[in-house]
Design a protein around this nucleic acid. Sequence first.
DNA 1: ACAAATATTTAGATTTGCCTAAATTTTAAT
DNA 2: ATTAAAATTTAGGCAAATCTAAATATTTGT
Lengths: 218, 218
Amino acid sequence: MTLSEEDYIKAIYHLGKGENSMVSTNEVAEQMRTKPSSVTDMIKKLSEKGVANYRKYKGVCLTEHGQKLALTLVRKHRLWEVFLVDKLNFAWDEVHEVAEQLEHIKSEKLTDRLDKLLGYPEVDPHGDPIPSKTGEFKKAVKKLLNEVPVGASGTCVGVKDSSAPFLKFLDKNKIALGDAITVLEKEEFDGSLHIEVKGKSIHISNQIAANLYLKITE
Amino acid sequence: MTLSEEDYIKAIYHLGKGENSMVSTNEVAEQMRTKPSSVTDMIKKLSEKGVANYRKYKGVCLTEHGQKLALTLVRKHRLWEVFLVDKLNFAWDEVHEVAEQLEHIKSEKLTDRLDKLLGYPEVDPHGDPIPSKTGEFKKAVKKLLNEVPVGASGTCVGVKDSSAPFLKFLDKNKIALGDAITVLEKEEFDGSLHIEVKGKSIHISNQIAANLYLKITE
DNA sequence: ACAAATATTTAGATTTGCCTAAATTTTAAT
DNA sequence: ATTAAAATTTAGGCAAATCTAAATATTTGT
């Protein structure tokens, strides 16, 4: 598989956590399933193009210009996700791969018209915010379950820990991605929660709650 | 510029004129703005993959499988063109380049859902037919002006001869792409036409008419 | 602070698509 | 039918992205 400059920019952006922190060669390599030496090569090129700042052995971050490019990619990716769900009735959990391809289409007009068609959405189907044309973010509607206030409801849209044991736990407790969840009560002393899922009330530890993402709906 | 296998398949398909005739290395090279030797290389690879039939010095055509791939590409290209015009209000003459990118997106589900969203259109904005999922074509609604029956109307959607002199001629006669045209009268002896364009009645030779495409509307 | 472990870069090879130039085959003209 | 012209393929190289293995730098644990 041959990776594009845009793929590298995206990886650096995401690893930089929105705040444009320095990311290491190995981090990028692992994220992109490639070798560190390949990353070094490409990063040098991005650096020469004025897209990234690279310092040997120190890591890499995006330049202002690089960040603009990254934001544009994120914007396109998330707009396409909304399109797939809202207009083509894809399920929210099957859009990523296709959006991954669509985000590389080069046409500013296309992106802007798509934005308009969709009614200028502020978040994607996973609850992640969509940057505006000028790069501004609205706040996310996605929160870790343990940060959701009592009484609030949402849809389970992702996990932070995707290890087998955790997923197994979810399964055993009949919590699935896509489920509607309401926070009923929060224990003071240990942060554990009573939540309602599929009409059933269950009790989960803070540990668990800290690894489940909710897209808040009310 | 680095061309994909799909680009080659498309070129071979289009040069083969729908009927899957043998096309020459040089034809493909010219169409793709690349060198004959590059074409030879790629054609060999396509042949090994079972997508094309290649005989040294004789030319190339698509296998059954290759034709399926080509049809899928044409289908995707034209569906995206309809999308851009109908849903995103692009002008019909500015969609080609973007559709050229979109046609490479790999997702059968996406294509089928798009088809549905658009109401299963049978022709694209240029009047060219859209293959169905199973590869069937409806007949084109695009005709050369000299083949259009007297009384019929349409929109000028393209030229066969795109040389500067011809385009200059069109300009001088105030015929532009996108214009509505009605055929008023046809001369028996030389095939020349009286047509109405923008409220004006003008007279054009068969020669000219044989190089103007109309998308028939009534 | 030092050695061992880890991370990163460099060197050199590989693959792929493309190119130029030379060799070969086919086509066309007399 | 023969030869000149045109088309096509082959040979050899280049550039880009990647990989492996070796070299170098940084970090960590004691």
